[in-house]
Design a protein around this nucleic acid. Sequence first.
DNA 1: CCGTTCCATTGACAGTTGTCTATGGGTTTG
DNA 2: CAAACCCATAGACAACTGTCAATGGAACGG
Lengths: 112, 112
Amino acid sequence: MKTAVPERVKGVCCPPSIPLSIAKVDACVDVLKALADPTRLQMVGALKRSSQPVCICDFTAAFDLSQPTISHHMAKLRDAGLVEVTKRGIWAYYRLADRLEPRTRALLDVLV
Amino acid sequence: MKTAVPERVKGVCCPPSIPLSIAKVDACVDVLKALADPTRLQMVGALKRSSQPVCICDFTAAFDLSQPTISHHMAKLRDAGLVEVTKRGIWAYYRLADRLEPRTRALLDVLV
DNA sequence: CCGTTCCATTGACAGTTGTCTATGGGTTTG
DNA sequence: CAAACCCATAGACAACTGTCAATGGAACGG
């Protein structure tokens, strides 16, 4: 029964008891921060569902946000390693990163 | 070949072409925001690994943060519906929420 | 070569977030 | 009751974030 609370002794609170998994936490948090925004989450979802790289101008049209804001959000996804860009002529085409970590891939499969 | 970029016509950029899945995005983002912090992510991980509810004083001891800050982080996890509390005497025991949405559960399985 | 188109960067600004100190409330113990 | 203990809330403050307008750079077309 998981809800049966452990016994405690007053004043003996707070031994350093919790095993924390500090490794990879920061990297994980960076990915979560990148995804924790409505615009960026929808961007990633659209890229994941698309069979082709998507021109960023389409995102500029799809969201009610200025072009610099869209560019800014995409830059955050780039910095997090989630997306990659191919420039062709005056256009910039984005896609999900080719070599996502398996955990990150699994995360996207759950999310979008 | 997913990297073959689509053709474009100059000036015809930005048709309203991207199908966005607006539903549930905000709810999803709320969960992601709650998890997108090193302290909170480790808290959730510790709760997930623990077979018993964990006294919040243990978190106060485990992290190099003040007691109100720990309480504040746990409140954020509560507000996001990720954890639940049982009070007993002067102690507050936290655990993962009993009825997490399947998607949220899957998210935690990937993350922690 | 010059204007047009698309994209990224910069700078500014308001709103949110993480942290602390201070305080108060509830529970147990002397 | 009074003191000690644990926890949550309130207030303050610095740091970060999301947004926009303005600017500049690169590529294309006449």
